[in-house]
Amino acid sequence: MNIAISNASDKPIYQQLFEQISAQILKGELENGYCLPPIRQAAQELSISVITVKKAWEALERYGLIHTVTGKGCFVAELSADRKLEIRNEMILKQMLLDTSYYKSFGLTLDEAIEMLKKVY
């Protein structure tokens, strides 16, 4: 599991954690049943607060990406390819919503935006 946290970023740290881990799960880099480090250990290793990690883990759980086995820890959930796709799209859409409002603030039309996206993608 790779995590890179930036204190300078505008995004709250738990958000960064959540996004990075969920991406790794959805891409299949973290397999079914992969055991996430305990919350307090992760907090200490990443030098972030316990609650932050807790919030990220909770968000992952809410999306059904991980599940908690009491006394054992958190494990990457078994997800069907369809379900993975569904979650991925849901998350991407959320980000797109933010991005498009930014494009709109410059008065970009949809076509213009697509055109530009094609160039950089």
Binding site: R40, Q41, A43, Q44, S47, S49, V50
Partner: peptide
């Protein structure tokens, strides 16, 4: 010091 503090609460 901050790292030490975090280490201290690690076991809850």
């Amino acid at each position: 010091l901050l790292d030490i503090f975090q280490g201290l609460v690690a076991d809850g």
